[in-house]
Design a protein around this nucleic acid. Sequence first.
DNA 1: CCTCCTCGTTCCGCCAAGAGGAACATCTGT
DNA 2: ACAGATGTTCCTCTTGGCGGAACGAGGAGG
Lengths: 284, 284
Amino acid sequence: MPEATGGTSSSERVADILLLFSDGPRTIGVTRAARELGLSKAVVHRILQSLTGRGLVAYDAASREYGLGPAAASLGSRALRDSDLRAVALPHLVDLRDRLHETATVSAKVPGGRLFLDQVVGAHEITMSVEVGRRLPLHAGAVGKCILAFSTPDEIDLALSRDLRAVTQATVVDPDRLRAELARIRADGHAASVGEREAGAASVAAPVLGRADVAVGAVSVCGPRFRLTDERIAAVVPDVVAAATLVTDALAGRATPGGPRRPAGPDSATGRSPLDRDGQSLTF
Amino acid sequence: MPEATGGTSSSERVADILLLFSDGPRTIGVTRAARELGLSKAVVHRILQSLTGRGLVAYDAASREYGLGPAAASLGSRALRDSDLRAVALPHLVDLRDRLHETATVSAKVPGGRLFLDQVVGAHEITMSVEVGRRLPLHAGAVGKCILAFSTPDEIDLALSRDLRAVTQATVVDPDRLRAELARIRADGHAASVGEREAGAASVAAPVLGRADVAVGAVSVCGPRFRLTDERIAAVVPDVVAAATLVTDALAGRATPGGPRRPAGPDSATGRSPLDRDGQSLTF
DNA sequence: CCTCCTCGTTCCGCCAAGAGGAACATCTGT
DNA sequence: ACAGATGTTCCTCTTGGCGGAACGAGGAGG
């Protein structure tokens, strides 16, 4: 696997243990965590002790297991509050909602997944509300596929080599079909999904791009399938794409001009463009 | 300092770096972080590399510094969602708000501070809204003092030996005066504050207790000073204390009896009571 | 435009922090 | 009461990673 240079394996172990709580159950025991990460129980136990001491995890005496602690909550709300992507996107989400009357969302890419950063819920009585902050897979739903489509080949390969479990009955789990879809999404500049992640729902997503035109997140509009018909999905695409483009430009510091997306390339007199550093995300 | 047994210093370093972002500025450079934690730049850099690889922190190319990443946001919303303390307290907060028409809050204690887990805002037009998730000092405000008053002597000493900067003009920064207040709070079972943390505001807080009657958090009612006069503060105290007691009991799994608070002591046939483990919080 | 200062990043050899296996203590379900 | 599993602790050996210093890239100021 492409090891990030310079890191220490012990730090990564700590991060991995923390991230175990992002997806898994509320509380996790030492043995289970050790099994899941391929570490010894002693190691996991020591790390959990340290994290408990800092309040990042808490020990649940009843179940004799560990769960996230209050410091993690603090960290997270700070991260959410500080997010450039969220702050920049929010007015555009409001605009989208006002124009389309459906729920508009921003998502961020995280290693091995994605999550909703925020939403502006629709104006209808029956509306759609997503779960902000939960880590979701990349292969299901318009947002996930959209982010994946605008990722590096390495990331795509990695994501498609995973389990690819079906979230709903409509989830595409065949790698070849997914690759074909990703190619089309990349060509179109947007993605659509009908009930792939949430049954009875549909959504349209367009990527927010960072350096090297790799997605750092996505903007989407979603709602119940009975309102988001195929025709309506096609109708909202331009608005979603436009919003995502505006967010992309604003994130990059460009003063949101009406002009076309600039092609990837060196942007000044420097011989090396600043975007071939190494695929790290910069602003989120 | 009272070192938590069993932990590894490298894990604690990772946690410390993460927590640096809880209070400090949005982005922090390697040099500054290293200075602040007393570590070498190389160590900080390596850890940040690892955390970046896992999405917990993100590199900001513009400022050449690091900030929290999307995975941290995911972690935090999960922690908030899973919080027993928050879930258990919420209905009582609604009840408090309905009865008193002022904003009701729950807070959790984190090592070296506290944070609001949630709030139910008041019914008036001019109301008070606290910042959920931000880490706040223990020496300022009713909630902070209340949590501190019901902490172990070690924790109190540690908290009072810090800087004790004045958050507002009314913040008490004299350790001796604070100790006297803490003693009174412990005797009364509740704390009050007028503009100590937020100018123009007042609040009343009562502790939510865990094992060994050490506070894991607090319930509070807060509002603008012009409505929360001294008389009204005195009037709401019983409601706040009652709510906190109910939350304490519910958290401990006891089926919320109307009975008196049970005194600290061994609770079964075991020779050693389970509460002298070592002051770890259990449920948050 | 050049210089200096500072910051982030990288390199390398020495060494103590921590990995790991196994024993111990506890609790649960049958 | 027993058996299995889980969290916790112990102890020794070794390898991961600490730290000081060198490097390269910016940015501020002259």
